[in-house]
């Protein structure tokens, strides 16, 4: 299966926590600004910073592992890592096989981005990443779904005309649109999908999940989560 593509990042042990438990954090590493591999070859992005912060608060040693999107849940269940923190929307179907924390990004909108703002997103070919809630939504909307394995390819497909629009998390598309020199425009209307983004755990790992859940609660209360969201996604997005 798509397994363990490994990146090293060991958090410095906080003094005193000599027997700190090691937790392996699984992410995709291809979804900026949520998570990506930076030019030094390390996992970076909003979720990297959030994950490290949460681990520090819970006195855990965290290591980062990247894996392909389509194998991300089977590999969690197989025990190849302990946490999924990969911009994963909380949905009912996923909730049946894994347990989510509370969301750490408020329920977000997904958006259509196209070369021509006037396209009818309910009928033209629309690209989306295989196995995402967006792909399911496009198929149901009546548009022609064009599927790609990575988020990057879905955008490339609009550039080269294979699809007329791409449907993805708005926060993922926003920086691409901003830097396209007017090439891209928003199309259609934004669609709220999912119950926000959460971290996923094996159902049997509730103790670990509670630790992270508590951390998120604390960060929501003291406002540091909002700061982090603004830092990575800009000040136009929804915060807590």
């Amino acid at each position: 299966m798509k397994k363990l593509i490994l990146t090293t990042a060991i958090l410095a042990l906080t003094a005193g926590a000599s027997f700190a438990e090691t937790v392996r954090m699984g992410t995709e590493g291809a979804y900026p600004p949520y998570n990506f591999i930076n030019d030094a070859g390390e996992v970076d992005g909003f979720e990297r910073e959030l994950g490290d912060k949460l681990c520090e608060m819970a006195s855990l040693t965290c290591e980062w592992v990247t894996t392909d999107w389509d194998g991300i849940i089977p590999n969690l269940q197989s025990g190849n890592y302990d946490v999924i923190i990969a911009g994963m929307s909380i949905t009912k179907e996923r909730g049946e096989v894994v347990d989510f924390t509370q969301n750490y990004i408020p329920p977000a909108v997904s958006a259509y981005m196209a070369l021509d703002a006037g396209v009818d997103v309910k009928s033209v070919p629309v690209s989306a990443q295989t196995g995402t809630i967006q792909a399911g939504y496009v198929q149901e909307s009546g548009a022609t779904l064009v599927e790609f394995a990575t988020p990057d390819e879905t955008v490339a497909a609009v550039r080269n005309g294979e699809a007329d629009a791409v449907f993805a998390d708005k926060e993922y598309l926003a920086p691409i649109l901003a830097e396209s020199n007017g090439q891209f425009a928003w199309a259609g209307t934004d669609v709220p999908l999912g119950d926000g983004v959460g971290m996923a755990f094996r159902k049997s790992d509730s103790a670990l999940r509670e630790k992270f859940d508590a951390g998120i609660t604390t960060m929501k209360a003291d406002g540091s989560l909002n700061e982090l969201i603004v830092k990575w996604f800009g000040d136009t997005v929804a915060t807590y």
Binding site: D70, P74, P125, T130, Q139, L145, V146, E147
Partner: peptide
Amino acid sequence: PAFRQEGDALYYASYLVD
């Protein structure tokens, strides 16, 4: 890419695994 979720045997297998 697969259009309208029309793909080959392996495509549907990956869909089902997903």
